[in-house]
Design a protein around this nucleic acid. Sequence first.
DNA 1: GATATTTGATATGGTCCATAACAATTATCA
DNA 2: TGATAATTGTTATGGACCATATCAAATATC
Lengths: 173, 173
Amino acid sequence: MTVSRTAEKSSEKPADAGKGRKDAGEVQTEALQLGELSEQLGYVLKRAQLKVFENFLRCMASLQLTPAQFSVLLLVEKNPGRNQTEIASTLGILRPNFVAMLDNLESRDLCARIRSTNDRRSHILVLTDKGKAVLARAKKLVATKHEARLNDLLGQANREALIGMLSKIANEF
Amino acid sequence: MTVSRTAEKSSEKPADAGKGRKDAGEVQTEALQLGELSEQLGYVLKRAQLKVFENFLRCMASLQLTPAQFSVLLLVEKNPGRNQTEIASTLGILRPNFVAMLDNLESRDLCARIRSTNDRRSHILVLTDKGKAVLARAKKLVATKHEARLNDLLGQANREALIGMLSKIANEF
DNA sequence: GATATTTGATATGGTCCATAACAATTATCA
DNA sequence: TGATAATTGTTATGGACCATATCAAATATC
């Protein structure tokens, strides 16, 4: 709906579009009023999500893992022996779109597709040793550089409350 | 990263991928364990955002307004006389991408571009009478069918706390 | 054993986001 | 003043993500 996301380059920083008020003897237009927008759930939710993803990508730059890829590795680690359909649908990823994603992870030797002996249509997914190692490092980066930032910003109790409310929305809205 | 969004058709409902456990005498594979995923800020944030947008679109079906379009109308109403660059950048929309969006709103007679007399490069944005009327109806729909749902789900106090925390993340993360 | 279903895959189109480049206009400043 | 730079809206274009239809191989169903 609203913002950019690359996190790297210029893009479009929202906030005060009228720049920084008065710097020198410039006329400088007044900053825009957000008004009711700042109370709109969808608006603030989307903005927060973009900021969080942006930060996630920065934290993961050394491992080159996107949020989606991280979630796949996490889920495969927790549920070894599942096939593509099961992993994809649990994450809300459509099977056709999951193919290229797995191609990527497999080409980087982070996970592997194994033909199931029970059902030779299925590809069982497992993490490779490298995949496990990378995921372990990713978890540490996320914990120390990403999630920790929430505690600094909101405090432990609020952080937990936030996650709880978002989960509730995700599941019951 | 994760889910779908159309809200209308089939798509891919996340949650329990192993369907509903045991219905009849089917073998039915076990439900997958989300594990640490359910504590990941980005994951739960994205999921909540998709659900909220989905619900927003349903509530606005009669007016055919997307969250982005709604935010534009809100901002133009609150800040009449601003040009495209100012409105777009405040919303984090890149100017090239704002053109088609305005073409749409203008073709529906919801807002209008007016050549500025001060700076003939600029297009001043204003809501048409129809735009004001539609926005008024949109606000009511959002308040009664969308935002009200948050109160039912979280309660007034929690709802305000949530908005506050998301704003903080959006601005300070 | 014929038919239907499931799985992974391909092809394809839509939407959103980002960059480069352009003409018209305005600002800068030598 | 006049040459140059910057700004505004716009177009063209490519990438990322999402969704649907369709397919062959394998399995399930009857």
